[in-house]
Amino acid sequence: MHSSHRTNANAARATSLGKRLSTMPVLLTDGGIETRLIYEFHCPLPDFASFLPLFDEKGRGDLTALYGSYLAIAAEFRLPMQIGTPTWRAHPEGLARQGFRAPDDLRRVNETAVRFLRDLRREMAVEDLVLIASVIGPRLDGYDPQGAPKAAEAEAYHRPQAAVLAEAGVDLLYAPTFASADELLGVAQAMAATGLGYAVAPVIDDEGLLPDGTALKDAVQRIDHAVSPSPLHWLIGCVHPARLRSAHEMPAWPSTDSPRIRGLKANASSLPPDELDRLDHLDEGHPSSFADEMLALHHDFGLRVLGGCCGTDHRHIRALAERLTAKRS
């Protein structure tokens, strides 16, 4: 398909997805991926490169069990769910650090990841419930903005991966755990160029600031005005629910009159992300407390995209699904 025709087709899909998302009272997400692979499945994962298990028999079995535990929750509770591809480090330099340096490795690895999830979704008969979000991670560190590329460089850097993922048949593009507002702008521009719908999820602290010091409201305003199309919605990634609640009350939080922050993929631990990143063990918290705090954010602030990040697993997502469906009774 000619690139302009493909972009137009993706734009039509983005419009359809935007309408679908607007009617959903809640969209559950998966929980932790990398932390589960490391601590639960004892899978070596240098640089959090979650694409590596796709290429050995044990690792592929681990990924099947891990993602299957989340898809089973969607099936059991009949809740729509977003799952993310194991491609957070499947960008050019992330691939090269793991020895994937062949000219076609970027396409091969990212397409393999998408195909894996599409096949699993079909096998588990949840195609009507589950959206596949293709994950694009930061060039360097998700918690430290030092060395992050400026916007123009970031757009050029992330564009090849965004294009491959959009062509692979995902439902939306997704950029989580970004520490730099400049790099977030660049990756948003790269995703927007595909025409496919996309979402972004920066990291913030208790005051609503990105690690580079940018107020969340300024990042939202800058990207929403500079990038066309703008993100379908914004999420917060990789922070504990209590930290988002604190940030929501700060001047750095975007206006609640026209909310753009629609969800949270939360950590199980209340530690700041940079401290959590230095731990040599898993801080998984309590699934029931996690679910209660997430449900409270849903009620109090209207957050509708709800799920887990570091330290969470199927128990946390199941507890959240139980509380969300109890509202139906």
Rank of each mutant, 00 (worst) to 15 (best):
Met1Trp: 09
Arg6Tyr: 10
Asn8His: 05
Asn8Cys: 04
Ala9Pro: 12
Ala11Met: 08
Arg13Ala: 13
Ser16Glu: 09
Leu17Ile: 09
Leu17Phe: 10
Arg20Glu: 10
Arg20Trp: 14
Thr23Met: 11
Thr23Ile: 06
Met24Ser: 14
Val26Gln: 13
Leu28Phe: 01
Thr29Trp: 01
Asp30Cys: 00
Asp30Trp: 02
Thr35Pro: 02
Thr35Leu: 04
Thr35Arg: 03
Ile38Leu: 14
Tyr39Glu: 07
Phe41Thr: 01
His42Arg: 15
Pro44Gln: 15
Leu45Thr: 03
Pro46Cys: 12
Asp47Val: 03
Ala49Phe: 03
Pro53Phe: 03
Pro53Ser: 01
Phe55Asn: 05
Glu57Val: 10
Gly59Lys: 00
Asp62His: 10
Ala65Val: 12
Tyr67Pro: 01
Ala74Glu: 02
Ala75Met: 07
Glu76Gly: 02
Arg78Met: 08
Arg78Trp: 04
Arg78Asp: 14
Pro80Arg: 08
Pro80His: 11
Gln82Val: 12
Ile83Met: 02
Ile83Glu: 01
Ile83Asp: 01
Thr85Met: 10
Pro86Ser: 09
Ala90Gly: 05
Glu93Ile: 15
Leu95Ala: 12
Ala96Tyr: 13
Arg97Tyr: 06
Gln98Met: 14
Phe100Gln: 09
Phe100Ser: 04
Ala102Pro: 04
Ala102Cys: 05
Asp105Asn: 13
Arg107Gly: 07
Asn110Ser: 09
Thr112Ala: 15
Thr112Glu: 13
Leu117Cys: 03
Arg122Gly: 11
Ala125Asp: 14
Val126Asn: 00
Val126Lys: 00
Leu129Asp: 08
Ser134Ile: 11
Pro138Asn: 04
Gly142Lys: 03
Asp144Trp: 07
Asp144Ser: 05
Gln146Arg: 13
Ala151Glu: 08
Ala152Gln: 11
Ala154Cys: 12
Ala154Trp: 02
Arg159Ala: 15
Pro160Ser: 12
Asp171Ala: 02
Tyr174Gly: 00
Thr177Met: 08
Phe178Thr: 02
Phe178Ala: 00
Val187Ile: 06
Ala188Gly: 10
Ala193Phe: 02
Ala193Gly: 00
Thr194Gly: 01
Thr194Ala: 05
Gly195Gln: 04
Ala199Phe: 07
Ala199Met: 13
Ile204Arg: 00
Asp205Tyr: 11
Glu207Asn: 05
Leu209Asn: 06
His225Ile: 11
Ala226Gly: 09
Ala226His: 09
Ser228Ile: 06
Ser228Ala: 14
Ser228Lys: 14
Pro231Trp: 00
His233Gly: 04
Leu235Cys: 05
Ile236Ser: 01
Leu244Met: 10
Arg245Ala: 15
His248Leu: 12
His248Pro: 00
Met250Val: 07
Met250Glu: 11
Ser255Glu: 12
Asp257Gly: 08
Ser258Thr: 15
Ser258Ile: 10
Pro259Val: 13
Gly263Val: 11
Gly263Gln: 10
Leu264Cys: 07
Ala268Glu: 07
Ser269Asn: 05
Ser270Gly: 06
Leu271Met: 14
Asp274Cys: 03
Glu275Val: 04
Arg278Asn: 08
Gly285Gln: 06
His286Phe: 09
His286Tyr: 14
Ser288Leu: 11
Ser289Gly: 07
Glu293Lys: 08
Leu295Trp: 01
Leu295Asn: 01
His298Pro: 00
His299Lys: 10
Asp300Ser: 11
Phe301Val: 08
Gly302Asn: 03
Leu303Ile: 07
His314Leu: 04
Arg315Pro: 01
Arg318Ala: 06
Arg318Thr: 10
Arg328Gln: 14
